[in-house]
Protein backbone atom coordinates (compact mmCIF):
# COMPACT_ATOMS: atom_id res chain seq x y z
CA UNK A 1 0.00 0.00 0.00
CA UNK A 2 1.38 3.38 -0.89
CA UNK A 3 2.32 5.84 1.81
CA UNK A 4 -0.43 8.25 0.76
CA UNK A 5 -3.11 5.61 1.24
CA UNK A 6 -1.60 4.56 4.57
CA UNK A 7 -1.84 8.13 5.84
CA UNK A 8 -5.34 8.54 4.39
CA UNK A 9 -6.45 5.36 6.14
CA UNK A 10 -4.97 6.51 9.42
CA UNK A 11 -6.77 9.85 9.03
CA UNK A 12 -10.14 8.17 8.51
CA UNK A 13 -9.52 5.94 11.50
CA UNK A 14 -8.56 8.93 13.62
CA UNK A 15 -11.82 10.65 12.74
CA UNK A 16 -13.83 7.56 13.51
CA UNK A 17 -12.42 7.56 17.02
CA UNK A 18 -12.91 11.22 17.76
CA UNK A 19 -15.86 12.49 19.73
CA UNK A 20 -16.19 15.37 17.25
CA UNK A 21 -17.36 12.99 14.56
CA UNK A 22 -19.76 11.14 16.82
CA UNK A 23 -21.22 14.45 17.96
CA UNK A 24 -21.55 15.62 14.37
CA UNK A 25 -23.36 12.43 13.37
CA UNK A 26 -25.79 12.86 16.27
CA UNK A 27 -26.47 16.52 15.46
CA UNK A 28 -27.07 15.61 11.83
CA UNK A 29 -29.55 12.88 12.72
CA UNK A 30 -31.37 15.24 15.09
CA UNK A 31 -31.39 17.96 12.41
CA UNK A 32 -32.85 15.62 9.80
CA UNK A 33 -35.49 14.40 12.24
CA UNK A 34 -36.47 17.96 13.12
CA UNK A 35 -36.76 19.11 9.51
CA UNK A 36 -38.76 15.95 8.75
CA UNK A 37 -41.14 16.87 11.56
CA UNK A 38 -41.37 20.44 10.25
CA UNK A 39 -42.22 19.33 6.72
CA UNK A 40 -44.84 16.97 8.07
CA UNK A 41 -46.50 19.77 10.03
CA UNK A 42 -46.39 21.92 6.92
CA UNK A 43 -48.27 19.39 4.78
CA UNK A 44 -50.82 18.84 7.51
CA UNK A 45 -51.41 22.60 7.76
CA UNK A 46 -51.55 23.02 4.00
CA UNK A 47 -54.28 20.44 3.69
CA UNK A 48 -56.45 21.95 6.42
CA UNK A 49 -59.52 23.40 4.86
CA UNK A 50 -59.98 27.12 4.74
CA UNK A 51 -63.50 28.10 3.54
CA UNK A 52 -63.93 24.70 1.91
CA UNK A 53 -60.58 24.60 0.02
CA UNK A 54 -57.04 23.55 1.14
CA UNK A 55 -54.90 26.47 2.32
CA UNK A 56 -52.21 25.77 -0.28
CA UNK A 57 -52.68 24.16 -3.64
CA UNK A 58 -50.23 21.55 -4.87
CA UNK A 59 -48.00 24.01 -6.76
CA UNK A 60 -47.82 26.40 -3.83
CA UNK A 61 -46.95 23.60 -1.45
CA UNK A 62 -44.18 22.47 -3.76
CA UNK A 63 -42.73 25.98 -3.91
CA UNK A 64 -42.82 26.40 -0.15
CA UNK A 65 -41.31 22.95 0.38
CA UNK A 66 -38.48 23.59 -2.09
CA UNK A 67 -37.75 26.94 -0.42
CA UNK A 68 -37.69 25.45 3.04
CA UNK A 69 -35.48 22.61 1.86
CA UNK A 70 -33.00 25.15 0.50
CA UNK A 71 -32.95 26.95 3.85
CA UNK A 72 -32.43 23.65 5.69
CA UNK A 73 -29.61 22.72 3.33
CA UNK A 74 -28.07 26.15 3.76
CA UNK A 75 -27.86 25.46 7.50
CA UNK A 76 -26.38 22.08 6.66
CA UNK A 77 -23.74 23.70 4.43
CA UNK A 78 -22.69 25.86 7.38
CA UNK A 79 -22.37 22.87 9.68
CA UNK A 80 -20.40 21.17 6.92
CA UNK A 81 -18.02 24.13 6.53
CA UNK A 82 -17.50 24.34 10.29
CA UNK A 83 -16.81 20.65 10.65
CA UNK A 84 -14.49 20.62 7.64
CA UNK A 85 -12.48 23.45 9.16
CA UNK A 86 -12.36 21.83 12.59
CA UNK A 87 -11.13 18.59 11.07
CA UNK A 88 -8.64 20.13 8.65
CA UNK A 89 -7.14 22.95 10.72
CA UNK A 90 -5.22 20.56 13.00
CA UNK A 91 -4.47 18.06 10.20
CA UNK A 92 -0.87 19.20 9.74
CA UNK A 93 -0.45 21.66 12.61
CA UNK A 94 -1.55 19.11 15.20
CA UNK A 95 0.87 16.48 13.90
CA UNK A 96 3.70 18.99 14.02
CA UNK A 97 2.83 19.99 17.58
CA UNK A 98 2.57 16.42 18.85
CA UNK A 99 5.79 15.23 17.21
CA UNK A 100 3.92 12.64 15.16
CA UNK A 101 5.09 14.42 12.00
CA UNK A 102 8.73 14.22 13.10
CA UNK A 103 8.49 10.46 13.57
CA UNK A 104 6.45 9.80 10.43
CA UNK A 105 8.49 12.04 8.12
CA UNK A 106 11.73 10.27 8.97
CA UNK A 107 10.24 7.20 7.33
CA UNK A 108 10.72 6.82 3.57
CA UNK A 109 7.71 8.99 2.76
CA UNK A 110 7.71 12.26 0.89
CA UNK A 111 6.12 15.27 2.46
CA UNK A 112 3.68 15.68 -0.40
CA UNK A 113 2.51 12.10 0.25
CA UNK A 114 1.86 12.91 3.88
CA UNK A 115 -0.07 16.03 2.89
CA UNK A 116 -2.01 14.25 0.14
CA UNK A 117 -2.85 11.39 2.52
CA UNK A 118 -4.25 13.78 5.09
CA UNK A 119 -6.23 15.64 2.43
CA UNK A 120 -7.54 12.46 0.85
CA UNK A 121 -8.66 10.98 4.17
CA UNK A 122 -10.56 14.13 5.07
CA UNK A 123 -11.96 14.48 1.55
CA UNK A 124 -13.39 10.95 1.68
CA UNK A 125 -14.95 11.67 5.07
CA UNK A 126 -16.41 14.97 3.88
CA UNK A 127 -17.83 13.55 0.66
CA UNK A 128 -19.25 10.59 2.56
CA UNK A 129 -20.88 12.91 5.05
CA UNK A 130 -22.44 15.04 2.31
CA UNK A 131 -23.81 12.04 0.42
CA UNK A 132 -25.21 10.23 3.46
CA UNK A 133 -26.68 13.27 5.18
CA UNK A 134 -28.26 14.84 2.10
CA UNK A 135 -29.62 11.51 0.81
CA UNK A 136 -31.22 10.98 4.20
CA UNK A 137 -32.72 14.45 4.21
CA UNK A 138 -34.08 14.11 0.67
CA UNK A 139 -35.50 10.72 1.52
CA UNK A 140 -37.26 12.04 4.63
CA UNK A 141 -38.68 15.01 2.71
CA UNK A 142 -39.89 12.72 -0.07
CA UNK A 143 -41.56 10.34 2.39
CA UNK A 144 -43.24 13.14 4.31
CA UNK A 145 -44.27 15.52 1.50
CA UNK A 146 -43.78 13.62 -1.73
CA UNK A 147 -41.46 16.39 -2.98
CA UNK A 148 -38.21 15.52 -4.73
CA UNK A 149 -35.67 18.21 -5.60
CA UNK A 150 -34.89 18.35 -9.33
CA UNK A 151 -31.16 17.51 -9.20
CA UNK A 152 -30.22 15.74 -5.94
CA UNK A 153 -26.95 14.38 -7.37
CA UNK A 154 -25.95 17.75 -8.73
CA UNK A 155 -26.62 19.20 -5.29
CA UNK A 156 -24.36 16.63 -3.63
CA UNK A 157 -21.62 17.24 -6.17
CA UNK A 158 -21.71 21.02 -5.69
CA UNK A 159 -21.87 20.77 -1.91
CA UNK A 160 -18.97 18.30 -1.86
CA UNK A 161 -17.05 20.68 -4.11
CA UNK A 162 -17.74 23.53 -1.73
CA UNK A 163 -16.50 21.46 1.22
CA UNK A 164 -13.37 20.37 -0.67
CA UNK A 165 -12.57 24.01 -1.46
CA UNK A 166 -12.76 24.80 2.25
CA UNK A 167 -10.73 21.67 3.05
CA UNK A 168 -7.98 22.58 0.58
CA UNK A 169 -7.67 26.14 1.86
CA UNK A 170 -7.62 24.98 5.49
CA UNK A 171 -4.96 22.38 4.67
CA UNK A 172 -2.75 25.10 3.19
CA UNK A 173 -3.16 27.23 6.32
CA UNK A 174 -2.46 24.22 8.52
CA UNK A 175 1.03 23.82 7.10
CA UNK A 176 2.05 27.14 8.62
CA UNK A 177 -0.45 28.15 11.30
CA UNK A 178 -1.47 26.65 14.61
CA UNK A 179 -4.76 24.78 14.59
CA UNK A 180 -6.69 27.64 16.17
CA UNK A 181 -5.25 30.38 13.95
CA UNK A 182 -5.65 28.35 10.78
CA UNK A 183 -9.23 27.47 11.71
CA UNK A 184 -10.19 31.06 12.39
CA UNK A 185 -8.61 32.33 9.16
CA UNK A 186 -10.27 29.59 7.09
CA UNK A 187 -13.69 30.34 8.57
CA UNK A 188 -13.10 34.04 7.93
CA UNK A 189 -12.35 33.23 4.30
CA UNK A 190 -15.51 31.15 4.06
CA UNK A 191 -17.65 33.95 5.49
CA UNK A 192 -16.06 36.56 3.22
CA UNK A 193 -16.82 34.38 0.20
CA UNK A 194 -20.40 34.11 1.36
CA UNK A 195 -20.70 37.86 1.63
CA UNK A 196 -18.99 38.20 -1.75
CA UNK A 197 -21.76 36.04 -3.19
CA UNK A 198 -24.36 38.43 -1.86
CA UNK A 199 -22.37 41.34 -3.27
CA UNK A 200 -22.43 39.80 -6.76
CA UNK A 201 -26.20 39.44 -6.67
CA UNK A 202 -26.72 42.83 -5.07
CA UNK A 203 -24.46 44.53 -7.61
CA UNK A 204 -26.43 42.91 -10.43
CA UNK A 205 -29.75 43.88 -8.91
CA UNK A 206 -28.71 47.48 -8.26
CA UNK A 207 -26.77 47.74 -11.50
CA UNK A 208 -23.69 48.69 -9.47
CA UNK A 209 -20.54 47.51 -11.20
CA UNK A 210 -18.18 48.26 -8.32
CA UNK A 211 -20.07 46.06 -5.88
CA UNK A 212 -20.48 43.31 -8.45
CA UNK A 213 -16.76 43.32 -9.32
CA UNK A 214 -15.70 43.03 -5.69
CA UNK A 215 -18.16 40.17 -5.28
CA UNK A 216 -16.90 38.40 -8.41
CA UNK A 217 -13.29 38.76 -7.29
CA UNK A 218 -14.13 37.28 -3.89
CA UNK A 219 -15.77 34.38 -5.66
CA UNK A 220 -12.64 33.79 -7.72
CA UNK A 221 -10.30 33.96 -4.73
CA UNK A 222 -12.43 31.76 -2.50
CA UNK A 223 -14.82 29.73 -4.64
CA UNK A 224 -16.88 28.13 -1.86
CA UNK A 225 -19.88 30.41 -2.34
CA UNK A 226 -19.74 30.14 -6.11
CA UNK A 227 -20.27 26.40 -5.73
CA UNK A 228 -22.99 26.94 -3.15
CA UNK A 229 -24.94 28.81 -5.86
CA UNK A 230 -24.74 25.66 -7.95
CA UNK A 231 -26.05 23.64 -5.03
CA UNK A 232 -29.00 26.03 -4.58
CA UNK A 233 -29.74 25.92 -8.29
CA UNK A 234 -29.89 22.11 -8.16
CA UNK A 235 -32.69 22.33 -5.62
CA UNK A 236 -34.89 24.81 -7.46
CA UNK A 237 -37.85 23.56 -9.54
CA UNK A 238 -37.52 24.98 -13.07
CA UNK A 239 -41.02 26.44 -13.08
CA UNK A 240 -40.27 28.46 -9.99
CA UNK A 241 -37.08 29.99 -11.43
CA UNK A 242 -38.97 30.89 -14.58
CA UNK A 243 -41.69 32.46 -12.45
CA UNK A 244 -39.30 34.66 -10.54
CA UNK A 245 -37.31 35.74 -13.56
CA UNK A 246 -40.50 36.36 -15.53
CA UNK A 247 -41.89 38.57 -12.79
CA UNK A 248 -38.97 40.95 -13.25
CA UNK A 249 -38.25 40.97 -9.49
CA UNK A 250 -34.53 41.33 -10.03
CA UNK A 251 -33.90 42.01 -6.35
CA UNK A 252 -34.72 38.36 -5.80
CA UNK A 253 -31.29 37.63 -7.23
CA UNK A 254 -29.76 39.19 -4.10
CA UNK A 255 -31.38 36.52 -1.98
CA UNK A 256 -28.70 34.06 -0.80
CA UNK A 257 -31.27 31.29 -1.11
CA UNK A 258 -31.91 31.89 -4.77
CA UNK A 259 -29.76 31.26 -7.83
CA UNK A 260 -31.13 32.17 -11.24
CA UNK A 261 -28.60 29.87 -12.95
CA UNK A 262 -25.92 27.33 -12.18
CA UNK A 263 -22.23 28.32 -12.29
CA UNK A 264 -20.90 28.44 -15.87
CA UNK A 265 -18.50 25.75 -17.04
CA UNK A 266 -15.64 28.27 -17.19
CA UNK A 267 -16.14 28.94 -13.49
CA UNK A 268 -16.04 25.24 -12.69
CA UNK A 269 -12.80 24.95 -14.64
CA UNK A 270 -11.45 27.87 -12.67
CA UNK A 271 -12.35 26.09 -9.42
CA UNK A 272 -10.36 23.10 -10.61
CA UNK A 273 -7.35 25.31 -11.36
CA UNK A 274 -7.79 27.02 -8.00
CA UNK A 275 -7.81 23.69 -6.14
CA UNK A 276 -4.67 22.45 -7.89
CA UNK A 277 -2.91 25.76 -7.25
CA UNK A 278 -3.84 25.90 -3.57
CA UNK A 279 -2.85 22.28 -3.00
CA UNK A 280 0.47 22.89 -4.76
CA UNK A 281 1.02 25.92 -2.55
CA UNK A 282 0.30 23.76 0.50
CA UNK A 283 2.76 21.15 -0.72
CA UNK A 284 5.44 23.75 -1.38
CA UNK A 285 4.84 25.39 2.00
CA UNK A 286 5.01 22.05 3.81
CA UNK A 287 8.15 20.98 1.97
CA UNK A 288 9.90 24.18 3.03
CA UNK A 289 8.67 23.89 6.58
CA UNK A 290 11.22 23.00 9.25
CA UNK A 291 10.09 20.47 11.79
Amino acid sequence: MSATLTIAGATVREASRKKLVVALALITVVGIALTGFGFWRLTVLAHQLDRGAPRLDVAELKTVTSQLLIVAMFAFSFVLALSTVFMAAPSIAGELESGVAAAVLTRPIRRVQFLAGKWLGLAVLTAGYVVVASSLEFLVVDLVTGYRPPHPLGFMAFLTGEALVTLTLTTLLSTRMSSVTGGVVALGGFMLAWMGGIAVALGAALNNHGVATVGTLTRMIMPSDGLWRGAVYSLEPAAWIAGILGSGRTQAAANPFFAPSGPPVAYLLWVGVWAVAVFSAASWSFRRREI
Binding site: M1, T6, R17, S98, G99, V100, A103
Partner: peptide, 20 residues
Protein backbone atom coordinates in the same frame (compact mmCIF):
# COMPACT_ATOMS: atom_id res chain seq x y z
CA UNK B 1 6.35 13.69 21.24
CA UNK B 2 2.95 12.32 21.95
CA UNK B 3 1.97 9.66 19.44
CA UNK B 4 -1.61 9.30 18.24
CA UNK B 5 -3.58 9.06 21.49
CA UNK B 6 -6.54 7.49 19.72
CA UNK B 7 -4.49 4.50 18.58
CA UNK B 8 -3.33 1.54 20.63
CA UNK B 9 0.39 0.91 21.02
CA UNK B 10 0.00 -2.03 18.66
CA UNK B 11 -1.65 0.14 16.01
CA UNK B 12 1.04 2.82 16.24
CA UNK B 13 3.68 0.17 15.61
CA UNK B 14 1.75 -1.36 12.70
CA UNK B 15 1.37 2.10 11.14
CA UNK B 16 5.13 2.61 11.32
CA UNK B 17 5.78 -0.82 9.86
CA UNK B 18 3.69 0.17 6.85
CA UNK B 19 5.46 3.49 6.49
CA UNK B 20 8.83 1.77 6.85
Amino acid sequence: FRYQVWLTAYEVLVLHCRLA
